[in-house]
């Protein structure tokens, strides 16, 4: 009896350590401990809620990117898409802001984003152009045209109702010094998106088909999956998340600027990859992606709290990415070697 339970315990641990998420989680704990030792302000509810709010933007983009990476592609045009959708809603808010509400703003931004994402999907599917090249191109097309049309102007001065969501909380605490903090509705929105994404990826035929396509697209075609529809969904969904992200960005900073997002696309790819998704497709999870975003968030925040100059932020992120992908590449190599050994009596 005792042997049995300890065996079960061993397999659970083994299973845990075969998962990439475990390592990311451990990295988060270790970094968290170091930062807390240096500056106890890190591990306060106030700081944690603050971080979750300000990284909701990256987190939302990351959810979309996760789908694209699982399908075997990559999309770096989403920042340009988000810039366009941001402009569209900003212009609408400034012109007839009183007739809009938060739902219609999200719907409009999402709808435009889906359209732009679908353009990516059509190019990739019909002309068989690598997704990285396609989206490098569309990134420039979307961003270039937008900047020409918008003349690079910053837009601000949105209606008051639009500003209030920044200070809206699902639940709230009041600190000893009188400031209040809590779970922002923006964070909650990101969490809901992740829940939906998790459900879609794990419990729908659509989600499993995306994994299948990323694992082996030739087989997926033979097995009767509609690859065009899957591509449309994946890149359309990335566009949707880009649109939602642009609204979150507008809510957070109450300004829409043409150059606030473009250039950050690879940071999002890095977060999702840190979370265990591979660029060859077929792997990745919502939990891992969340942990990847959290890891990047606490590193950025931790460096500030430890009074490391902001210039070092990228150095740390770059190093962590290289160590992380290096370690998982090494693990893959070792397990592949183990598998090839055959049995000899």
């Amino acid at each position: 009896m005792t042997i049995k339970t300890s065996n079960a315990g061993v397999t659970v641990i083994k299973k845990l350590f075969s998962r990439h998420e475990t390592f990311v989680f451990l990295a988060i704990v270790i970094f968290g401990l170091i930062i807390t030792v240096v500056n106890p302000d890190f591990l306060t509810l106030e700081n944690v809620f603050d971080l979750l709010k300000s990284y909701a933007l990256m987190g939302t983009f990351a959810v979309g990117m996760l789908f694209v990476l699982i399908s075997g592609g990559i999309d770096i045009s989403f920042t340009a898409i988000a810039t366009i959708t941001g402009y569209v809603i900003a212009v609408l808010l400034l012109q007839n802001g009183e007739q809009l509400n938060i739902v219609s703003v999200f719907a409009i931004a999402g709808g435009v984003g889906v359209l732009l994402g679908i353009i990516n999907a059509l190019i990739i599917y019909y002309f068989n152009i690598p997704s990285i090249i396609t989206t490098i191109a569309t990134l420039n097309i979307y961003y270039g045209l937008l900047t020409v049309i918008s003349k690079g102007k910053w837009l601000y001065g949105f209606p008051a109702w639009f500003g209030q969501y920044t200070q809206m909380y699902v639940f709230k605490f009041t600190a000893a010094n009188g400031t209040s903090y809590g779970l922002s509705v923006i964070t909650a929105f990101w969490f809901v998106l992740m829940l939906i994404a998790w459900f879609v990826l794990r419990y729908t035929v659509l989600g499993r088909s995306i994994y299948a396509m990323g694992g082996n697209s030739a087989s997926a075609k033979r097995a009767g999956f509609n690859l065009l529809r899957l591509n449309l969904f994946v890149y359309g969904f990335m566009g949707l998340m880009a649109g939602f992200g642009s609204v979150i960005q507008a809510l957070l900073v109450q300004t829409v600027a043409p150059n606030s997002l473009v250039g950050k696309e690879l940071d999002v790819v890095a977060a999702v990859v840190l979370g265990g998704a591979s660029l060859t497709g077929g792997t990745g999870s919502v939990l891992g992606t969340f942990l990847g975003v959290v890891l990047i968030a606490i590193m950025g925040n931790g460096l500030t709290l430890m009074r490391v100059p902001a210039f070092w932020y990228k150095v740390v992120i770059g190093t962590v990415i290289l160590i992380s992908v290096g370690a998982s590449a090494y693990r893959r190599k070792v397990s592949a070697r183990r598998r090839t050994i055959i049995e000899v009596e």
Partner: peptide
């Protein structure tokens, strides 16, 4: 991508 972030950070 990793070296790009690292090197531009440096």
């Amino acid at each position: 991508l990793g070296t790009m972030i690292l090197v531009s950070g440096l």
